[in-house]
Amino acid sequence: MVWEGLNIPRETREEAQGHGAAVVWFTGLSGSGKTTIARALERQLFHDGVRTMLLDGDYVRHGLNGDLGFSPEDRRENVRRVGEVARLFFEAGSVVLCTFVSPYRADRDRVRSLIPEGRFVEVFVDVDLEVARARDPKGLYARSQAGDLEGLTGVDAPYQAPVAPEVTVETRDVTVEESVESLRRALVEAGVVPGGSR
């Protein structure tokens, strides 16, 4: 197989569209608020004229990764595949928002290595386990407590929190709107998106 470069380079796309590309990787326990914040951020960025793509764990597991379970090996493969898809959208000039528990640091670091320095933004959506249990939007913690679900991250499977994420959002203490503003500010400071709304 002979590798060919992109037909239209990412830098050309970025110049034409007036903003850079990036991968914003949301990680945290189920119920932390990853998807809620990412969806709100995407709406804001879209309103600002930024090309976006949201890759959500539930959506991906219904299609691309429908053949994977939740063993450590399957979790790694889930993140590996998503990382490759995120890179494709990145090279197409998009700000790619990825919302995955992604419990292992090594897997997240592997995705980071696919993206140029300064264009991967790891977002640790931090929440106490008890708060996540109380929210339980998918009923996973209730199923785990009832003995109907094994291997739930943070309960009976490990979660390795980021050591030095670009952004930490503590959702017990801040609103969705405040979270979106801090993330948008991080993208502005990284030179990915313009400072003002269009």
Rank of each mutant, 00 (worst) to 15 (best):
G31E: 07
S30C: 10
T12V: 15
T36S: 08
V24E: 07
H62L: 01
A16Y: 12
W25E: 04
Y59C: 04
A21Q: 13
S30I: 02
E14Y: 11
E15H: 13
R13N: 14
E14H: 06
G63Y: 09
R43G: 01
H62F: 00
V23M: 13
G18V: 10
A16H: 11
M53A: 10
G20W: 15
S32A: 12
Q44L: 13
A40Q: 02
R61V: 05
L45M: 01
M53V: 15
T35W: 07
E15F: 13
R61W: 00
D58M: 14
R51Y: 15
T52I: 12
D56E: 07
F46H: 12
G57L: 09
L41N: 02
H19M: 10
E14F: 10
L29N: 02
Y59D: 12
Y59G: 07
M53C: 12
G18Q: 12
R39F: 01
Q44I: 08
G20A: 07
M53H: 10
G33N: 00
H47P: 04
D58G: 03
A22Y: 15
M53W: 15
R13F: 13
A21S: 14
R39E: 00
G18Y: 09
R61M: 01
R43H: 04
G20M: 10
M53S: 06
R39S: 08
G49T: 09
V50D: 08
